[in-house]
Design a protein around this nucleic acid. Structure first.
Length: 565
RNA sequence: GCGCUUGUGGCUCAAUUGGAUAGAGCAUCAGACUUCGGAUCUGAGGGUUAGAGGUUCGAGUCCUCUCAGGCGUACCA
């Protein structure tokens, strides 16, 4: 239900009838219940243009407003606000329709586009650490969201599988263990050991350097070893994705090395366009207004990540045909992407109409506000963090005696992983955020557990009711009115979140929805004595739609629900 | 130095992108029918939105300056 769009049409219609010529202006949600459901503030904005006082304009609009369909009432307030009340009958009908729809009334795009979402991007030389968490879950949510709305989403996992450190790693792999599966169990340690050997053993260091050259020149033996190393390392990542419930597969992997043979061509193309300049031995693109150039080829002939990113941009725009390319990468790389995007457009690698965006995010901090580290200052492995989340979740539910150990385990995973993801997704993407176990695993406040509790509570009602729900939805009081309206806002919220790539708009909505439902639940009994049949059926349907909306919303965030907590 | 970015109750975060009296949750205090799941709900106190100017009908939001923090600043990714 594109609620706002419907309301805007009504307003626009009134514009026409009132003889106001102006580009469409949008309604917004009312800031308070006393001010109705929606408000239109355009009269004030029009005041200067039309040379009339805003209240007069507002009155003119109201006089021509259709109050027979969506709207029930409109009032002028303050300097020229128009407060709008939705028609309860209309709301009820829409909720009823949404309930019978698998997509809860959310339409699919009329004009879907191809969108590349680049996220996660772990380095194969090391185990995934907390630094990859945000990219992985924000990116996955964005991909889920756009898929749900109907876009053709192409997930791209730009893994780091190339570079000098791989010479060292595969040389060590060969020396240490033919099979590889044993010694790679702990990649972090493997890396440290290899580095240790590199520093201590001159022969080994030579061999490592030799291997770098060999891989890059396509030596079959070295490439086989390298491939083996990547396979195992990627396997570790997939274990993490599995635990996280993230929808990334091998098919989504387009590694750095995938673009290798494109790199010289990128340089060539830039040279042809005449944008390339040599500076201190390196090949650079100087952008107007930027002091620092984009270096695309080092003095020694090697390529840099800007080169790879340019190749990837060209591939995504020209081969994959993407119209929107979103990079979910740490905010600190804003400068890099700004430059690379400009170069890509100016060089014609990416057509003008393709939207390039860097979806930046802040750093994860500990309780004291410092970057998240282990006690001894090392990076926290993602897998350890997730395991700890499950353990902590288990502690919060260990007083449940009617569950089997298996059920507890399943529940702990859903709660623990959900908490980690929700905590991250529920804060503004661009700011740093404080990682706090106690807060994220709480039943209170804006947490996944509170949403899951709300959902389970509704399921409990239906377990008890255990019959078919039928009949109409009747908006009986102000709370039902608000709840029903909130439910109809779902699509608008998703749409907004998709445009801004900001999952926290979804979590904010879900939190408001669940809070509202809890109040409704306290005040509007369904199965208690003395509730007439019609009211019962109506309220049950509102509860049902609430539960389905929570479930769908969390599903987009990659978080599961359970019928019983 | 230059550039980007952040600053909102004691703490953690919102604020529909310029709208009405800046909202939640923790924490504190006070309440709720022998509970459709009390893992809940209701209420109270707590704010000069870092500071100073400006733009306009209207500013937490936009502009300028100041203060304080974070990050980035050519051959790592």
């Amino acid at each position: 239900m594109k609620l706002k769009s419907h309301l805007n049409n009504v307003i626009q219609d009134a514009f026409l009838k009132a003889g106001i010529e102006h580009a469409p202006l949008s309604v917004s949600e009312a800031t308070k219940p006393e001010f109705g459901d929606y408000q239109f503030n355009g009269a004030m904005a029009l005041s200067k243009k039309l040379g009339k006082n805003p209240r007069e304009i507002a009155q003119n609009i109201i006089d021509h407003l259709d109050l027979t369909g969506i709207l029930a009432k409109a009032e002028i307030a303050g300097p020229g606000f128009i407060n709008l009340w939705l028609n309860p009958l209309w709301i009820a009908t829409q909720c009823h329709t949404a309930l019978s729809d698998k997509r809860l009334g959310v339409s699919t795009r009329e004009n879907p586009i191809k969108v590349v979402v680049d996220y996660s991007g772990p380095n194969m030389a090391k185990q995934m650490h907390v630094g990859h968490l945000r990219s992985t879950i924000i990116g996955d949510t964005l991909a889920n969201l756009l898929t749900f709305l109907g876009d053709e989403v192409i997930r791209q996992n730009h893994i780091g599988d190339w570079g000098t450190q791989f010479g060292m790693l595969i040389a060590y792999l060969e020396m240490k263990d033919e099979d590889g599966s044993v010694s790679l169990k702990d990649l972090e340690q493997f890396y440290k050991d290899a580095k240790g050997e590199f520093d201590a053993n001159a022969d080994f260091a030579d061999k490592a350097r030799e291997y770098v050259v060999k891989i890059q020149s396509g030596d079959a033996h070295c490439l086989t070893l390298w491939q083996k190393f990547i396979d195992i390392s990627l396997g570790h990542c997939e274990e993490v994705y599995e635990k996280l419930g993230v929808n990334l597969t091998r098919e989504d992997v387009r590694a750095e090395s995938f673009y290798n043979e494109e790199l010289p061509k990128v340089i060539e193309s830039l040279a042809e366009k005449g944008t390339l300049q040599e500076s201190n031995g390196a090949q650079c693109v100087f952008l107007e207004g930027d002091e620092i150039p984009v270096i695309v080829q080092k003095g020694d002939g090697g390529y840099l990540y800007a080169t790879t990113d340019l190749a990837a941009l060209r591939y995504r725009a020209q081969v994959l045909g993407a119209k929107r390319i979103s990079y979910v990468v740490d905010a600190r790389q804003a400068g890099h992407f700004k430059q690379v995007f400009r170069v890509a457009k100016e060089a014609g690698f990416v057509p003008e109409d393709v939207k390039l965006e860097h979806i930046g995010f802040g750093t994860m901090m500990d309780k004291s506000g410092k970057p998240f580290k282990t006690r001894d200052g090392g990076t926290v492995k993602l897998i350890d963090l997730l395991d700890e989340a499950v353990i902590k979740a288990r502690e919060t539910i260990n007083n449940k005696e009617d569950y089997s150990p298996e059920q507890i385990e399943t529940l702990a995973k859903i709660i623990g992983i959900g908490a980690v993801k929700y905590a991250d997704l529920s804060i503004n993407r661009e700011s740093n955020y404080i990682f706090n176990w106690d807060k994220m695993l709480s039943f209170e406040g804006n947490t996944s557990l509170y949403m899951q509790y709300g959902y389970a509570r509704i399921q409990s009602i239906f377990r008890k009711f255990d019959a078919n729900v039928s009949g109409e939805i009747i908006i009986g009081d102000a709370l039902e009115h608000r709840l029903a309206t909130m439910l109809l806002r779902f699509e608008d919220i998703l749409e907004r979140a998709a445009i801004d790539a900001s999952p926290n708009q979804i979590t904010n909505y879900l939190y408001d929805l669940v809070t509202l439902f809890m109040r409704f639940y306290e005040q509007n009994p369904m199965l208690k004595e003395g509730v007439d049949e019609q009211t019962k059926m109506s309220r049950l349907q509102l509860a049902d739609l609430t539960a389905k909306t929570i479930k769908q919303g969390l599903d987009i965030l990659g978080i599961q629900v359970v019928d019983k907590l």
